[in-house]
C-alpha cells in the first residue's frame, strides 16, 4: 500500500497510509473542537488538508495571488543569536528586506522583555532610528511582557512559583497583581519611547507566558497606549492556545482570563485596541504533523470567523502545526503555512 511521508510533532519521519492520514486529520480537528468548544473542520476542508499533507512535493505553496504578509517575533534574535550568523541588527533587517523579501520585520533586544529595555532605552531608540533610516519595510519593536522578571531574584516581588507549591495561594495572587501593575508601567514607557523613535509598530510577544496576569498586563497596557497615542500600531502574539491560570481570578471587561482559548483571547485583544492578533496553537510532539495542522486550522478558523482585525497565527518551532525542533523542516512548515492560510483563513503569518 502506498505510504505518505510525514512527520511526528517532534520532527521525526513518519510514513502514513491514506486512511491513517485521514484519521489523524479527523481526530486533530475533533480534539480542537472539543477543547475550544468550537466547530470542527468540514469534510471538504479535511479533504483539502489531505491534499496538502499528501502532496508528493517536498515544499508546497499557495496559488499565485493567495500569498499573505508576514510579521515576525524575536526577529533580530534569530539570525545572530540562534543562527550564529555574525551580523548586527541593522544587517539582519537589511538581509530580511533585501534578500528574503520580508514584508515587515521586528527589532528586539537580546533580553527581549520590556523590563530590561527600560534601562537601555536611549540606545534602543538610537538603533531603531538608524534602522528606520535604512529600511523601507515596516519595522516593529518587540518584547515580551514577561511578568516573571518582576519576581525574586530578578525583581522585587515574591515569586509566585515558589509561593504556590507552599500553598500560599492568596500571597501568590497578590504578587501577580502587583507585578501586573509594574509591567503596565514598563510596557507603556518602552512602547511610547520606541514609537517616538520611529517604530512602525509595537509587537507584544509571547503574551500570557506567565499566566493570566501576564495577559491582563498586556491588555491594560494596550488600552493605555491606545488612549495616549491613538495612532500607535500594536500586534499581539500569544504564548499558548489557552491562558494558563496562574492566578485564576483575574478578569478583563468582566471576562475571566484563565482558560480562554484563542478565539476568546482575540475578542479581548480587539476590545483593548490590538491591531493584529497572533494566535498560538501548541504542537503536540507525540502526535503527527497532520494531526497538529488540522488542530491548528480549527482554532485559527474559529478566530478568523469572528475577527475584525487581521489574524497572523504563529507558525514556527513548536506552534501552528510545525514540529518542536530547533530548525523547522521545510516540508512541515510549508504545509502548515498553506493550511493555515487556505483552511484557517489567516490574513498573515
Amino acid at each position: 500500500m502506498k505510504k505518505i511521508f510525514s512527520r511526528m510533532g517532534d520532527g521525526s519521519a513518519l510514513w502514513l497510509s491514506e486512511d491513517e492520514l485521514r484519521q489523524d486529520l479527523r481526530t486533530g480537528t475533533e480534539d480542537a473542537a472539543d477543547r475550544g468548544k468550537i466547530g470542527p473542520l468540514s469534510d471538504d476542508e479535511l479533504e483539502r488538508l489531505f491534499e496538502i499533507c499528501a502532496a508528493p512535493q517536498k515544499v508546497v505553496s499557495v496559488e499565485p495571488g493567495q500569498e499573505v504578509v508576514h510579521s515576525f517575533d524575536a526577529g533580530t534574535l534569530k539570525f545572530p543569536l540562534r543562527g550564529g550568523v555574525p551580523v548586527d541588527r541593522l544587517g539582519t533587517v537589511m538581509a530580511h528586506e533585501r534578500a528574503f523579501c520580508s514584508d515587515t520585520f521586528e527589532v528586539g533586544h537580546s533580553d527581549y522583555s520590556f523590563k530590561p529595555v527600560k534601562a537601555i532605552i536611549a540606545e534602543e531608540r538610537q538603533s531603531m532610528e538608524q534602522i528606520q533610516l535604512n529600511a523601507t519595510i515596516p519595522v516593529y519593536y518587540g518584547a515580551m511582557p514577561n511578568l516573571g522578571l518582576y519576581t525574586k531574584p530578578d525583581g522585587p516581588i515574591d515569586n509566585w512559583s515558589e509561593l504556590l507549591p507552599m500553598g500560599k495561594v492568596q500571597e501568590a495572587r497578590e504578587a501577580q497583581e502587583e507585578a501586573c501593575e509594574m509591567a503596565i508601567q514598563d510596557i507603556f514607557f518602552v512602547a511610547e519611547a520606541m514609537h517616538e523613535a520611529g517604530s512602525d509598530g509595537i509587537n507584544f510577544d509571547t503574551v500570557g507566558a506567565s499566566g493570566d496576569a501576564d495577559f491582563l498586563a498586556s491588555l491594560l497596557a494596550v488600552e493605555k497606549l491606545k488612549k495616549a497615542i491613538p495612532e500607535i500600531h500594536i500586534e499581539m502574539g500569544m504564548a499558548g492556545e489557552f491562558v494558563l491560570g496562574m492566578h485564576g481570578g483575574l478578569k478583563y471587561n468582566d471576562t475571566r482570563l484563565a482558560g480562554l482559548y484563542c478565539h476568546k483571547q482575540l475578542e479581548l485583544a480587539e476590545k483593548a485596541g490590538v491591531d493584529i492578533f497572533g494566535p498560538v496553537i501548541n504542537t503536540k510532539s507525540n502526535k503527527s504533523v497532520p494531526w497538529n495542522i488540522a488542530r491548528s486550522c480549527t482554532f485559527v478558523k474559529a478566530c478568523s470567523e469572528i475577527s475584525k482585525i487581521p489574524i497572523h497565527p504563529n507558525a514556527g518551532m513548536g506552534v501552528g502545526g510545525v514540529p518542536v525542533t530547533s530548525t523547522a523542516p521545510v516540508d512541515a512548515i510549508s504545509r502548515a503555512s498553506v493550511a493555515l492560510i487556505e483552511i484557517g483563513k489567516a490574513d498573515g503569518l
Binding site: V169, V243, G248, G259
Partner: peptide
C-alpha cells in the same frame, strides 16, 4: 491540562 481548572485550584 485542558485549561478548565487553574493552578491555584490545583494547589488547593
Amino acid at each position: 491540562e485542558r485549561g478548565e481548572k487553574f493552578l491555584p485550584e490545583l494547589i488547593e
